[in-house]
Amino acid sequence: MSPALALVAVVFVLVATGVYLVLERSLTRVLVGVILLSNGINVLFLVASGRAGAPALVGSAADSEMSDPLPQAMVLTAIVITLGLTAFLLAMAYRSWQLHGHDEVQDDVEDRQIRTRAGRDETSGSYDPDDEETPVEERSEDRRRAHASPAPADAPADGRAERRARRSAARGEERRARGRGERP
């Protein structure tokens, strides 16, 4: 079986543009990419079904004339499924726009924290200096400096006023402080 060149070309163009769009950051573009991709794959099923033939309706043509109906049934199912998924993606893009004013896929929060920590050469929030054996003087000294230098001295909360001040502090500031791992 040698497939029709035109169909293969269509598959190629649809899939290539689809992949390009899926790699974009905005959900609506991803959505268009998914639609193009799945349509490309639907055409691929037509290629897979072999040569073209008469409609596969019993009695309309001789059996040998008919095209293979099975891939067509599969494509129909795939189209319905893609419709549902497209609707869901649209809803999600809309919700994202509602929440953030844009529909871009965001970075993982933890990943971002780890990256900024690595940039500042800090240990993670789960690092516990008590775990460390004592003799390694210089190393823990280094670490303490890394912890202490950018942080405002975070004394134990001993007053109501201070707590209120902390509460009202800018959220980013607070989160950064927490990321550093406060020491009493």
Partner: peptide, 24 residues
């Protein structure tokens, strides 16, 4: 959800391509 949905759909599409190839 955005990450999860896009990755899952991609995997489904790869699976679909595989089925088409197997059928062909």
């Amino acid at each position: 959800g955005s990450t999860y949905v896009v990755v899952s759909i991609t995997s489904s599409l790869v699976f679909l391509v595989a089925i088409a190839l197997v059928y062909a």
